[in-house]
Design a protein around this nucleic acid. Structure first.
Lengths: 194, 194, 194, 194
DNA sequence: AGATAACCGAGACGGTACGTCCCGTCTTGTA
DNA sequence: TACAAGACGGGACGTACCGTCTCGGTTATCT
């Protein structure tokens, strides 16, 4: 009574084994063929252990992506907005790369019919990155590289939209030259006063 | 003269019953909970009949969408480009509407891990519509509403991209006012000389 | 208008093709894996044509066996009863030979759960042969090789029983020496007066 | 001390439910119309649970028969060989009774095209009973009721053969009087010196 | 220094759907 | 009208995973 409650005595080694297995299997078979059973088996872990900590395979992958994402610096600020955007967009393109085996593309697909996963995806993975993006854009506004009037929601849509449009219909990711063209169009339209 | 071959031929009534069942079930349960078994059962059709003509539920939905799409006129040409784009984009937004039960969103999700479906989705549904879009844009160029130099691939990315970006992360579809803002930005940047 | 009615215009060539296909497939895959579809396909015949003339695959095989059986002389009468029985039993053993691919064994198995087939099997194939057997035995009685009191039903049971008992439990068919032993026991007990 | 291994173990209640369902359904519909699906459904068990432990419906029925058989005393020894044989044969006749719904007849039929099942049928069900039969016969030899020279394989064939011959061709099982006649013939021929 | 309670592996379990096979019926044109 | 071709509704097959559930065993705090 009145004593400290048990903290979760979660096994970190199991957690890492699960992530490693999930990453490997996703790369080998693609997200669609990935199963909890296979992850458990490959990780040498009981299925129960996975279900104890995550509600679905999407949640495992989401946490894995989140962990990977937070390990990297994001939205570099070299002072050159267009160059920094190119760097960042190229990184995202790399993560969506072959849609078959891209963990991120898999989670996006699953989230389309799983509202709980969609919620977590937006809240834990996407919105923090959107905030970072807007911070970088505001910094550009302060530095006079972008009009102070620029609508940052529009900026997000114009810059990131093409990637997901192309992902959705397998139109191929933009090559570097075309990416520059896109960035140029977006920045140009954002910097014009209405 | 050139008469019908000696084969038992496909039942049109089964085909329509399958489409009707698929449409209903997708609306009721969402694409993710849709199963071939349920479609067959609701349509009063054997599973074999579905598998005889389509390789997966995605292919059924794709053909259904294609049939629905070709029944409607597309990319209206009222002479007012921005208005016509608003009309068209609003129609697409309507099809993606609640991602849970949108047949189109479901096919997009499935195509992310099914290359064969992805191929058909692009070839049968998307590319013809992209061609229509570009025709409309070329018409606008002829009419002087759009710079003759405008890059139509960029146009596609800037105008449609935001929809799929928002779909992917459940950011909510653009409302009419914001849609106009997007269209304005896109057209503005396209019409500037490089 | 009082003209002659159409007699059944059954195609004899189809009938023979069906029998040939059935025989081959039964030998190749065994009776258990034999299907009407495969017979039709191999025979170059429509399934409908098979169903028009036979109610089941068992009936096809039964007719095939009947046709084969009636082409051979049965129950030879060389004057030596034991030798003739040995000849006849050896022929039957040959027909039951590898139970997997024996058409006769297959029909027997199927008749165990198909009363209509069982009826036809008994009536068309078995009872005529039982009658022949009894005729031969009666001839032996007339010739003094068998007691006139011998119970021919018992004779049938004692002589043929061992084959089916061994068939049922895969105990291996009697070899020639053992077959002679069986015949000797049977005839001895039949010839004793009670 | 040699304790239980660290594994989830088989559910005895499921096993009994499966046997009960199989028994009932076999009696209701006959072995031929018996399906794994129906057994699973009636037993309130998943199909996988059946397939986990048995390779086919024949194997389920075989184990069920084995279990039932080992629960009863066999080959009684009252000192009267003919009477004991009559008792035993009558029991077997009862198990083969209506071929449609006899589980034993069903397994025999299936074993005719399933070598693995045939193997198990012989090894687990039949050979132990043959051994019991021979023990009883040897006891009779010791007690002077049967010639010490009697060939026990022949005895088996002559006594049990008629049952399976009659089963195979739906000739009707022997009635008690005829059964006595058969036993008398068999024992007589076995007890004669060669 | 136990006690004890959560975690862990293993994997059986009731389910649902899969995609396939074959059934027996039917439809369509040809001969 | 018999036939080949083969689509059809139906039902069972055997498999794959789902998410839940016991089972013993192993930790790792908390008395």
């Amino acid at each position: 009574m009145g004593n400290t409650p048990n903290v979760a005595r979660r096994s970190e080694s199991s957690r890492q084994a699960i992530f490693a297995a999930a990453r490997e299997l996703c790369a080998e078979r693609g997200y669609g063929r990935l199963t909890i059973e296979a992850i458990a088996s490959r990780a040498g872990v009981s299925k129960k252990t996975i279900y104890r900590w995550w509600p679905s395979k999407g949640a495992v992958i989401l946490e894995l992506l989140d962990e990977a994402a937070t390990m990297k610096a994001h939205h570099p600020d070299t002072g050159d907005l267009a160059a920094d955007l190119r760097t960042q967009l190229t990184a995202v393109i790399g993560m969506l790369a072959p849609p078959q085996t891209s963990a991120l593309a898999g989670v996006i697909a699953e989230a389309l019919h799983d509202p709980a996963l969609a919620h977590d995806l937006r809240e834990r993975l996407i919105e923090p990155r959107i905030a970072e993006f807007k911070n970088r854009m505001r910094q550009a506004q302060r530095q006079g590289q972008l009009s102070p009037d620029a609508d940052l929601d529009v900026a997000l849509d114009l810059l990131y939209g093409p990637l997901y449009h192309r992902l959705a219909f397998h139109l191929g990711m933009p090559d570097p030259a075309y990416l520059d063209t896109l960035i140029a169009h977006a920045l140009r339209s954002l910097s014009m006063t209405q």
